[in-house]
């Protein structure tokens, strides 16, 4: 698999995932401890490894690091977006 010099629109979806995550995250009302936040991030990295980047992606910016080690960066950015959007929401339960 050759690496293209240009990220052909592979970053766009990651950014869109982040924005949508912030938008949906504002509906979450809960206070998370730092340990739970770290747990969610770690789980999202594991899940991103399991989901893999799509087969047409071929750049590091799209999540392809080596031939068989690919991360679905959209998942991670969506999770980070949700966590950031949650901090905008007022009030918290728990």
């Amino acid at each position: 698999m050759m690496l293209f010099p240009l990220a052909l629109g592979e970053v766009t979806l990651t950014v869109v995932a982040f924005i949508l995550g912030v938008a949906l995250g504002t509906q979450l009302r809960s206070n998370l401890s730092r340990r739970t936040t770290l747990l969610i991030l770690a789980m999202s990295v594991v899940a991103a490894f399991l989901f893999e980047a799509p087969i047409h992606y071929s750049s590091v910016l799209g999540g392809v690091f080596f031939e068989h080690i690919t991360f679905s960066l959209k998942f991670i950015s969506a999770t980070i977006g949700l966590l950031i959007g949650k901090s905008f929401a007022k009030g918290g339960i728990q």
Binding site: T36, L39, A47, T79, L83
Partner: peptide
């Protein structure tokens, strides 16, 4: 439950963007 809910939403976003 709450981490699973957050990860599920992220998964939904992944599915729609792919």
């Amino acid at each position: 439950a709450l981490p699973v809910v957050i990860l599920l939403i992220a998964y939904g976003l992944l599915v729609v963007l792919e």
